[in-house]
């Protein structure tokens, strides 16, 4: 997970207990802690402000309705983050009919040049670049590289194998490189 992610914040046990007793003020405090991080995660996956806001709305209703199912066997912020992630991926699947990489496509031409240079160096707006990735590439990329989920966890989110996550991430990087180089080239040849 990114160091500056809002999901790094720790929620006190007392606050969780109050929320589990249905205290609406406790829910508001939890919302205030994670609203920005939830929105950022949802927006980066779904790429639309209105959809991201809907995701946050529905995810928090789920958090409030299911808070009693939280059993303190992990961090509360991690539990909330998973709910937001599932909600965002659900929206993505519904709105884009996300094409998932087939297991047959796993044998792929390996591009050893992919990391021979830092092709992100010349990119000015990284967020804009990420938005140009196809929805499923973007989702896997965000979950692995920004949110810090591993391939096993991503496979669970998508109900696919770990190989699916590995191949999709690799392809997402390849696609991102292509877009980055194209964008940099366009900038170089753009009239002043």
């Amino acid at each position: 997970m990114r160091k500056n992610s809002g999901f790094n914040q720790i929620v006190s046990k007392d606050l969780i207990l109050l929320a589990q007793q249905g205290d609406i003020d406790a829910f508001e405090k939890i919302y205030r802690l994670f609203a920005d991080a939830s929105y950022a995660l949802a927006f980066r996956i779904c790429s639309q402000h209105s959809v991201a806001e809907d995701v946050v709305h529905d995810a928090f209703i789920k958090i409030m309705n299911n808070v009693n199912k939280f059993r303190n066997d992990g961090s509360f912020s991690g539990w909330c983050r998973r709910i937001v992630t599932y909600e965002a991926l659900d929206r993505l699947k519904k709105s884009h009919r996300v094409h998932l990489v087939n297991e047959d496509d796993l044998i792929d031409g390996e591009e050893l040049e992919l990391f021979q240079q830092d092709w992100l160096d010349a990119v000015i707006d990284l967020d804009k670049l990420l938005q140009q990735l196809s929805p499923n590439y973007r989702a896997v990329f965000i979950l692995h590289e920004l949110e810090g989920y591993n391939h096993k966890e991503i496979a669970q989110f998508f109900e696919k194998s770990e190989s699916f996550s590995k191949v999709t991430l690799n392809r997402a990087y390849a696609s991102l490189k292509k877009i980055a180089l194209k964008t940099t080239q366009e900038l170089q040849y753009a009239p002043n």
Partner: peptide, 28 residues
């Protein structure tokens, strides 16, 4: 790869355009 990841880690936190708490509270 590490250098690229460093740039990704420093991406700014996106902020929602509006405060939706009242809407969420009302729906709940």
């Amino acid at each position: 790869l590490s250098a690229m990841r460093g740039k990704l880690q420093n991406l700014a936190e996106q902020k929602p355009m509006s405060d939706n708490w009242q809407h969420i509270k009302a729906s709940y």
